[in-house]
Write a protein that binds this DNA or RNA. Structure first.
Lengths: 141, 141
DNA sequence: GTATGTGCAAACTTTTTGCACTTCG
DNA sequence: CGAAGTGCAAAAAGTTTGCACATAC
């Protein structure tokens, strides 16, 4: 996703295009490792030292509300943000506390097939995400 | 799990049995709906008004460290605690923000079978949890 | 021009910490 | 008795808020 696409996605949601929104959105994509608000702020301040933390939180909220990014949480720490909006799962490293995306359509189909036959009484499933805990063997970047 | 069993599980981990630990552990079991630290504190203060928040957090940490309870987080809010330690999944209600446990050995077997054949390169899986988002049709208690 | 967004600083919430005191074993 | 645990109050960490000012459209 490049700057023009970011711009268009803001416009498509009726959000005004501001330098702050562009750089926050871009930061999440570039940091790509589910950055926390803090990491996003630090990254942006390299170029734009005057951005306020309040602004970053407000922008993140509005992006989440408009479905442009999503929030993730680990069991240990704070909010993380994720620009990947297609259905995907998360690999959580128990050592380094990193989160990686995991896309597997075959797995999705398998699980969807299972719940097509077996329903959970009293519960209407909308979406299933796997939290796969484990360790990276050869630390990916 | 009754008081004697709670007591024994503390002893088995080398933890001293204190009234605070007993009532915190008991609260999590009785509240059974993945209470937050706040809810646990409020519940205990009904009987034991002088318990300090610092103590509750310290006790919760030690119970988590010793594998007697676990932490859960939603994408929206704070830590929640869970006394169910067997492998299980979570049903998240997108409306009410409630969390329910979901145990399904057939599903576990299906997923284990899948990952026995297909491995994720560079990642050693330890444990898989499903986050099943949806809605309760007839609100269970 | 005006609705929307931003900066700033203060406040709020949740969690952590240090240390003296207490209690379990 | 001694190690482990608790109470308290202060502080840290992360996030939210209100309002004046600035900017996108």
């Amino acid at each position: 996703m490049n700057l023009t696409e970011i711009r268009n996605s803001l416009i498509s949601k009726g959000l005004r295009v501001t330098p702050q929104r562009l750089s926050i959105f871009e930061a999440i994509i570039k940091l790509h490792d589910h950055p926390s608000a803090d990491e996003i702020i630090a990254f942006i301040r390299q170029d734009q030292p005057n951005i306020a933390t309040g602004t970053v939180y407000k922008v993140l909220d509005s992006l989440v509300e408009n479905g442009l990014i999503s929030k993730v949480k680990t069991d240990k720490d704070l909010m993380r943000y994720d620009a990947l909006m297609v259905n995907h799962h998360h690999l959580y490293c128990v050592d380094s506390d990193k989160i990686h995306d995991y896309i597997d359509e075959e797995l999705d189909a398998l699980i969807a097939g299972y719940f097509a036959k077996k329903e959970i009484s009293g519960f209407k499933i909308e979406d299933i995400r796997l939290q796969i805990n484990g360790k990276f063997i050869n630390e990916p970047s």
